[in-house]
Design a protein around this nucleic acid. Structure first.
Length: 418
RNA sequence: GUGACCGUAGCUCAGUUCGGUUAGAGCACCUGGUUGUGGUCCAGGAAGUCGGGGGUUCAAAUCCCCUCGGUCACCCCA
């Protein structure tokens, strides 16, 4: 071999047991949201590029992180950088009856420099609710994410919530921010001065030392809320209190996608020592459906990062991967044909069974049996073949073994595996 | 896109400072000790373009340049 191919930059292979843990995380999520009546939606992984441009021309996701290309039919296509736009596009296309409560799981793609917790292909699980404007939907959505983290066993996740107000409030607040930062432009970092010109809200996100004082002194969004927006936000926080979901109000919480209005929220894993510690986030996007061609329909939802959530589980030492993948290992020293039939019999009886290949020695097959994690071995040698029996051996403990008739093999294994 | 650090068996790493036989170890893997029995132990084996290319030199894993990749951080976000 003169050349080894590698997974492309920013992507990686998820091998067992990580893959098993990954799958079971998605299973837990599906269980949590199904309990609340959410139905799965599986949108395509790419869309017409215009769908994602609705995320906001000023966002980095659209400006420099999109995997876009022209297909052979001359269509401008982009791999999805997130799924909310796809799901809302699907809503606009199919017009399901509202309230439409959907959940999803799958990969997204952003062209970025990879680092811990940030990859070019990254998976998210999430929900979207289209239709109701009720603040209690915001609370339900937030609480579902919270219960999901609880089910995983995570204890050190914190929830920050904020309101960006109605679109009009948001515009007035942006002006107030622009005035605040412009007044003291010299003490702002160079990067933030650039950000200020493009999107003043995002300056609040700066983690640079130089900006700390000015950001701390910035006006609060909460002082710029209309009465309606303030009432909506109050109903959200009251409901979270009633649910016993702890949160902090973070007036400077801004999120990177321009479609958010009113409620926004973010989950941070305190246990993660990485820079990328936001494990999930979401908010309300009342204008998005209309932008994508549907009648004006309010929406709210969240996306949780699968990769980062699992990193957080590592950091907290919770949600361990399963260990054993099979129950019974078949050892056959008579040529292997008995093993062909026996593994099939075992599998049809509902037992997980595997075997060794290539006619290896009994010792090698027993090593393989041990390594497989199987609790029991079924052994066939010339004697058993002639007698129509098998040896059933306990691979745990002291390895007791008995010779049994073929007819009773399944029953005995079931009893031993219990 | 910017910066820092790092690339030696499948994995974790010695060796690089100060160039010098055939590049080592542990784990994992294979075979045997045990021609019908795993785990522990013992013996042996296989496994490396020293990330790649170029340069300096009698001689390069080691020095220089370029490049690719990885990690982390900035940015941004899940």
């Amino acid at each position: 071999m003169d050349h080894i191919f590698r997974a492309p930059k920013g992507t990686r292979d998820i091998l067992w047991p990580d893959s098993a843990r990954w799958r079971s995380l998605v299973d837990v999520f599906a269980d949590v949201v199904s309990s609340a009546g959410y139905l799965e939606v599986i949108p395509p992984m790419f869309e017409h590029v215009e769908v994602f441009q609705r995320l906001g021309e000023a966002t980095d996701v659209v400006r420099k992180e999109m995997y876009s290309f022209e297909d052979r039919g001359g269509r401008q296509i982009a791999l999805r950088p997130e799924q909310t736009a796809s799901v809302v596009r699907a809503f606009a296309q199919h017009r399901p009856v509202v309230p439409w409560k959907a959940w999803y799981a799958g990969p997204n793609f952003r062209y970025e420099r990879a680092q811990k917790g940030r990859y070019r292909q990254f998976d998210q699980v999430g929900v979207e609710v289209l239709g109701p404007e009720d603040a209690h939907v915001d609370a339900e959505v937030i609480a579902l994410a919270w219960r999901f983290y609880e089910r995983l066993g995570l204890r050190r996740v914190t929830l920050a919530v904020n309101s960006l107000g109605s679109p009009g409030d948001r515009a007035r607040y942006v002006e107030a921010l622009r005035a605040h930062f412009s007044a003291d432009l010299d003490s702002l970092s160079e990067e933030s001065r650039t950000t200020l010109a493009v999107n003043p809200l995002r300056v609040l996100d700066s983690s640079r030392e130089a900006d700390a004082d000015l950001v701390a002194a910035a006006p609060s969004m909460l002082d710029h809320l209309s009465d309606d927006a303030e009432a909506h936000f109050g109903r959200v926080t009251d409901a979270l209190d009633a649910l016993g979901v702890p949160f902090t109000v973070s007036p400077h919480l801004v999120r990177g996608l321009d479609y958010y209005v009113r409620t926004t929220f973010e989950f941070v894993a305190e246990a993660l020592d990485a820079a990328q510690d936001a494990v999930g986030g979401g908010g309300r996007y009342d204008g998005l459906a209309e932008d994508l061609g549907a009648p004006a329909t309010p929406g709210v939802g969240f996306a949780l990062g699968v990769d980062r959530t699992l990193l957080a589980c590592d950091a907290e030492g919770v949600f361990d991967a399963p260990t054993s993948v099979i129950d019974v290992f078949v050892v056959d020293t008579t040529g292997g044909e008995r093993a062909v039939v026996l593994t099939d019999d075992l599998r049809r009886a509902g037992l997980r069974a595997d075997r060794a290949w290539d006619g290896r020695s009994m010792k090698a097959q027993m090593k393989a049996a041990d390594r497989s994690g199987a609790a029991m071995a079924v052994i066939v040698g010339e004697d058993e073949l002639a007698a129509g029996t098998v040896a059933v051996r306990d691979l745990r403990g002291d390895g007791g073994q008995e010779t049994v008739a073929l007819d009773s093999m399944i029953d005995i294994l079931r009893a031993r595996l219990r």
